[in-house]
Design a protein around this nucleic acid. Structure first.
Lengths: 242, 242
DNA sequence: GTCTATACACAGATAGAC
DNA sequence: GTCTATCTGTGTATAGAC
């Protein structure tokens, strides 16, 4: 059995968001470090503790301002002021405003991929797989709620490669849910007459609402576990056999 | 009984989107006409067949461009060119770009209110009320899909009154679903242990996905009736008693 | 009522001092 | 590596001709 694989990330977030949150922080640091290597031809500043700290602040500040007024309406002067770096200094971390957008996208996408890829590995039954997947998605979108919101809202302005990658990611997530259901049908754990791809779509819509309407759930004191469980219950109740 | 009230709009869209679409077109014309009266202190051009036609084109063109690049990134030169009116002419239909945004919002909000207000009137059972409401919402958001998308995406840039009205509208729609479920619990048509407000939220999220991910459902040839029915089935299956 | 030409503010980006 | 000063393009909005 695979039970002894204790370094696997997925055991951390099945039932507890707090543990998940702690583990993802370390991963995010690694990802920013990796951004330097992946973009070394674009970044003038050499990789160092100080510069990693600065890049992280630039990314988070840009996301924060953009979520209030939109990326295109965020001026470099504003970003400069809010991140406590001069405009000149900013431009040594990225060559243009467009490239900063790409860097921000790379940052979040890397975190999401790392999380979801581990979410299905140890789950066996349809019920457990669906449960784990929904929880993993809610948890990562809670930990990175600002990035998720940013990415969702700015996607439509993306062009070329960046746009395609985002659409691809949307459809890939959906296809994972679709597979869980299709597999459940095959194993007679689910009803046989289900429109699995349509159910996968609405499941994703429910999960996305968590970060799209964060203000609403916060106001009502709904915690990630509670929301994830309700989503799971609604869908599982609809698909499961007998 | 109320059955003889044949002028009521709701009988048109329960099962058939095409009939709904035809009836809403007339309503939209009335709404643009009303926009002149409500904003006569802002609009320099006098109300006429030509000017109503122009204002409608301005609104639809602005929505269309904004949905591709965002309202703030849409330039007046661009809107001028795409709507075949000079910049000078545009500014006799609205005093500023900000005011145009308000006019666009008034336009859509009036149409939505008119539709949803009639959706619950004749329905009696919980099942029928939920069915009708979900269908009405999917149908109006299909007919005005560009406006719905626009409104959803630009809300966060709104300030003051406009922002409050949009939030209010979101919560009001949800409270209607919440009431349907609460009423069903009281009448023992629904399970007694339901978190009705949370279910109302995810129901709304599912309905919103119809216009937020229009490209996806179009690609898969999903029609409004099919999507509405699936949403209804998932939720009704979860809430209904026995 | 609609046009063209233009005023004036502010955007992104860069050069060169330190 | 970071700063300030500045270049150039584009934005919103308006004035005045037709």
């Amino acid at each position: 059995m695979k039970a002894e694989k204790s370094d696997n990330i997925d055991e951390l977030f099945i039932d507890n968001y707090n543990n998940f949150r702690k583990s993802i922080k370390i991963i995010l640091d690694d990802i920013v470090t990796k951004l330097y290597d992946d973009n070394k031809q674009l970044i003038k500043v050499k990789k160092s503790d100080q510069s990693i700290h600065n890049l992280k602040r630039i990314i988070n500040t840009a996301i924060s301002i953009s979520n209030k007024k939109g990326y295109s309406a965020m001026s470099m002067r504003e970003l400069s002021h809010a991140s406590s770096l001069s405009i000149g200094a900013l431009y040594s971390y990225f060559p243009s405003k467009d490239e900063l957008l790409h860097i921000i996208q790379q940052y979040g996408r890397a975190a999401v991929e790392k999380t979801l890829s581990g979410a299905l590995s140890n789950a066996l039954s349809t019920k457990d797989k669906l449960y784990n997947f929904i929880h993993a998605h809610i948890f990562i979108s809670e930990a990175l709620k600002d990035w998720f919101y940013f990415s969702y809202m700015e996607t439509r302005y993306f062009t070329g490669v960046e746009y395609n990658k985002t659409i691809e990611s949307e459809l890939f997530t959906e296809s994972l849910i679709d597979s869980i259901i299709k597999d459940g049908i095959k194993k007679s754990e689910c009803k046989s007459n289900l429109n699995s791809s349509l159910i996968a779509s609405v499941t994703k819509a429910m999960m996305q609402d968590w970060y799209l309407k964060r203000w609403k759930y916060k106001r009502r004191n709904i915690i990630p576990e509670e929301y994830a469980l309700e989503c799971f219950n609604i869908i599982y109740n609809y698909i499961h056999q007998g």
